[in-house]
């Protein structure tokens, strides 16, 4: 797969269906984000960097794994930009790559406790692997 920048930008647009150009840089997403303290790139930066075509940097971002997909940013964005959907698109671009998994079945047993719901494991696999 060739990895020129336009291809990455188009892929992100295609997966997310979101147009980052509608962002007016108000920062309500960052204001609303419950995972902000754990993120290396704040939601508004993330949107801005997608717009600037800096997808490769975003694919290295830890924010991808810290986003809670709680849609607070989606709900409150006055421009319908959906930052968390963009984040998901880049996350998918990472885990769809060869070796892009962030979790493997082998490491599961040690992460479990007695009460963990099935839903948590399904979510983890959905979020961290293909």
């Amino acid at each position: 797969m060739h990895q020129n920048n336009n291809y990455l930008v188009e892929t992100a647009a295609q997966i997310s269906g979101v147009n980052p150009k509608s962002c007016m840089k108000c920062g309500k997403c960052t204001a609303s984000c419950p995972a902000f303290d754990d993120m290396d790139l704040s939601p508004h930066m993330f949107v801005s960097m997608v717009e600037a075509g800096r997808i490769r940097e975003l694919m290295e971002s830890t924010s991808l794994w810290k986003c809670l997909s709680c849609f607070a940013c989606v709900e409150r964005c006055p421009r319908g930009v959906e930052p968390s959907t963009l984040m998901e698109a880049v996350r998918l671009m990472v885990i769809r790559k060869q070796g892009g998994h962030r979790i493997s079945a082998d490491e599961i047993p040690e992460l479990l406790d007695k009460r963990i719901p099935q839903q948590a494991l399904t979510s983890a696999f959905r979020k961290y692997s293909r």
Partner: peptide, 22 residues
Amino acid sequence: IKGMVGKVVPEKGRLLVRGSDL
């Protein structure tokens, strides 16, 4: 402050204004 408010949270009789400083 260049930024927006995400939520106003009533806390201990005051209002906590949670926003961003871009």
